[in-house]
Nucleic acid binder design. Structure first.
Length: 210
DNA sequence: AATCCGGGGCC
DNA sequence: GGCCCAGGATT
């Protein structure tokens, strides 16, 4: 099992190197923790291509918590209107206020402090740690959960989310959690899709439980 | 534990 | 017309 898992990681990272979405702006190494934080809030229940359409102008106008909070609320709302979920305007404003009040306007690098920000749950907190600070923090969204459940099979028909978090923790290669998570997400979005998965071009077709 | 949010893309 | 999307807040 552990051996199979190691091979899975190697093949997945190889797939990612060739087929990953390496041009997404919030994955650029120059992206600041706040810019990555902004991307994580935008990506909640929202496709990456949708976010790409508004992200660049948004972080250019609001590169910090201070600039975002100083902007008129209606301007922020209009900037993210194409993303849906209008309550995200409140997420941005309240979280920015909390960043300024508690963390001198900076994005914290601890799980507990991230969780106390409005709009940040277990997934977003772990994702920020992995992508903004290079931590080995596995973050399992519905996309990753589906991929792992299919490839490794799930004992129960309705797999416990905690099982997938543990599995992801075990699989994540030390020091490369950042790439590993992006690879899982891209693979889930391009090949192991929710409906009508592209199994014929899947490198795990031979051993996949699905 | 269940419900709600939301515009856009794709059946 | 229904389902899905880098989930989380609310009840």
């Amino acid at each position: 099992m552990a051996d199979e898992g190691g091979e899975f990681v190697d093949v997945l990272l190889e797939w990612y190197a060739e087929n990953g979405r390496h041009d997404l702006p919030w994955r650029d190494p120059s992206a600041s923790p706040f810019e990555i934080f902004v991307a994580e809030l935008m990506l909640q229940q929202t496709s990456a291509e949708q976010v790409r359409g508004v992200y660049g102008e948004f972080v250019e106008q609001y590169p910090t918590a201070g600039t975002l909070l100083a902007a008129p609320e209606e301007d922020v709302a209009k900037a993210i209107e194409p993303l849906g979920l209008r309550k995200r305007t409140a997420y941005f404003r309240r979280a920015s206020a909390q960043l300024l009040a508690r963390h001198d306007g900076r994005v914290p690098d601890s799980r507990s402090e991230l969780l106390n920000l409005h709009g940040v749950g277990e997934y977003t907190a772990a994702s920020v740690l992995a992508h903004a600070y290079g931590r080995d923090a596995s973050a399992v969204d519905t996309n990753v959960e589906r991929v792992l459940a299919r490839v490794f099979g799930s004992e129960s028909a309705e797999p416990e989310s905690s099982e997938m978090w543990d599995l992801s923790d075990r699989l994540a290669p030390a020091g490369r959690c950042d790439d590993f998570l992006h690879a899982l997400i891209d693979f889930g979005a391009a090949v192991c899709t929710a409906r009508d998965p592209n199994c014929e071009s899947c490198p795990f077709e031979a051993t996949c439980e699905y």
